[in-house]
């Protein structure tokens, strides 16, 4: 029962709509700009990785696995997380 309800609560949003200090997983990346996509994946921002949003202002600061990244809203909008 508990499992089910927590499963139902799982929601997918963009990183910038994510609630801060909560840990989730990157579900997918969505961008039409191949340069941005390539940059993100080469830096290790990949689907399936655990992600925590730490800060939204002055820029977005989040942690993927063991590394922190700062990005602007434009980029944060391309990263989808589920938690």
């Amino acid at each position: 029962m508990l499992m089910e309800s927590s499963h139902l609560a799982l929601k997918t949003t963009t990183l910038c709509a994510m609630e801060p200090r909560k840990t989730g997983k990157i579900s997918h990346l969505e961008t039409k700009n191949p340069g941005i996509l390539q940059k993100l994946v080469s830096m290790g921002i990949l689907p399936g990785m655990p992600v925590t949003l730490l800060r939204r202002s002055p820029s977005y600061l989040f942690e993927v696995d063991q590394t922190r990244y700062a990005v602007d809203r434009e980029i944060a909008n391309h990263i989808y997380v589920s938690y």
């Binding site: 910038c16 949003l53 809203r73």
Partner: peptide, 26 residues
């Protein structure tokens, strides 16, 4: 622990924001 705190609503941030204005402060 962090996640649990959030789920039980003890966190100190505003709930239910989904807009990406970039203005909210953590």
């Amino acid at each position: 622990v962090r996640a649990a705190v959030t789920l039980t609503g003890k966190g100190s941030w505003k709930k239910g924001h989904s807009a990406c204005t970039g203005q909210e402060k953590v």
